[in-house]
């Protein structure tokens, strides 16, 4: 299907890092079933570095590919660097997404931020709250394009 780039299809067909981390240091879940996409990211963090990242996704091809790519992009990176991951970087790494699928990359960015926030909370590390999106219930639906 020409809807997606080869990169997207590769990450959709062979998603990297699918699964669950038991006793994860940070977990972030965003989206809701009503809009048709849910992403859940699990992080293992050692010495301030993302030692492992895994995901579970309910969603379309680009949602699965975005989760896969986003986890790839942060694995092995310091937490401070992972925090700067943008949806744009995910889109670029995937060689682009159709306009109405950009929200999937936004979800991936937000899921990772949420997992990192959860890590800060669990570890009792002070952090800047303004760094994190506060859309809880369904900000993504509202920002949905198309």
């Amino acid at each position: 299907m020409a809807l997606y780039s080869e990169k997207v299809m590769d990450h959709f067909r062979n998603p990297r890092n699918v699964g669950v981390i038991e006793n994860a240091d940070g977990v972030g879940e965003v989206g809701n079933a009503k809009c048709g996409d849910i992403m859940k990211i699990y992080l293992k963090i050692e010495n301030g570095v993302i030692a492992d990242a895994k995901f579970e996704t309910f969603g379309c091809g680009s949602a699965i590919a975005s989760s896969s790519m986003a986890t790839e992009l942060i694995k092995g990176k310091p937490v401070s660097e992972a925090l700067t991951l943008t949806n744009k970087a995910v889109v670029e790494a995937l060689d682009g997404l159709p306009a109405h699928k950009i929200h999937c990359s936004v979800l991936a960015e937000e899921a990772i931020k949420k997992a990192l926030q959860d890590y800060y909370e669990k570890a009792g590390i002070a952090y800047d709250h303004t760094q994190f999106p506060d859309c809880e219930s369904c900000g993504h639906c509202c920002g949905h394009e198309g």
Partner: peptide
Amino acid sequence: GIEGESLLLLLD
């Protein structure tokens, strides 16, 4: 528990 588009793509 699943979403239709990914189902279609994998069936394709």
